[in-house]
Amino acid sequence: MKIVWVAAFIIYLYLLTKLILFKGHTMDWDVVRVQLITIAQQPDLIHTRTVNLTPFQEISRDWHSLSLHRPGTAIHLLGNVMAFIPLGIFIPVLMGNKLLSGAKVLVLSLLLSFAFEVTQLLTGMGIFDVDDLMLNTFGGVIGYVLYSMLIGMKRMIVGGTARTARKEYNSNQSRV
């Protein structure tokens, strides 16, 4: 079963890369290579890239546009969150649902999102946006919460004890 999860995770990363870097078009790694060589040879080009380092700037703009009934902005807001929800499920499944899994999901969602944003900045294949970092990370956390809820429901239905449930003995109770 683990092999199926690993295969699904690889497919997920492929599709996520295709969506974020290549905007759903054919994945052409030569374009990435050429862009990286260009930025290495002319580092001043980095200043020509569009960057948003102001938290909530694009989120606020998109939220306002939603009130003006522009559906494209909903895709941007929800898409950034929804794209990382599967990551919040894959991490505890593949790494084991152990203590601090939520923290792992938070950190790994942030790091993967940051890797995509830096790649967009260096290649010019998108915009480095701090709001995307926040939305993507939030999506990973939502995925983890959904995973945890499903595991909790499974334990209730199938039976078994919860991880945190422990019986503590009161000193007044008799021990057998």
Rank of each mutant, 00 (worst) to 15 (best):
V93P: 01
M149K: 04
R33V: 15
V158P: 00
L99E: 14
T119A: 14
L122P: 06
A103F: 13
P43R: 09
I91R: 00
R33A: 14
F116L: 07
V34H: 12
S60A: 03
P43A: 07
W63I: 12
V145N: 01
I85K: 02
S109M: 02
G72N: 13
G126I: 12
A115W: 12
M134G: 05
S101C: 04
L94Y: 02
H47R: 11
R155G: 06
V93M: 02
F90E: 00
E117Y: 07
I85Y: 04
G96Y: 05
L68S: 14
L78S: 04
G143C: 06
L68A: 15
V141A: 01
I91F: 00
L112I: 15
F138N: 00
R49I: 02
T137V: 11
Q42Y: 14
F90L: 00
Q57I: 00
L150A: 15
R61T: 11
I37L: 15
V105K: 00
G124T: 07
R61M: 12
M149E: 07
R155D: 07
M153V: 12
P86V: 12
G140T: 03
G96D: 01
I127W: 09
I127A: 07
T73E: 14
R155E: 06
L68G: 10
I151N: 02
A103D: 02
D62Q: 13
G96H: 05
A165N: 08
V32F: 08
M153R: 09
L36S: 09
G88K: 01
G102W: 00
I89V: 15
L45V: 10
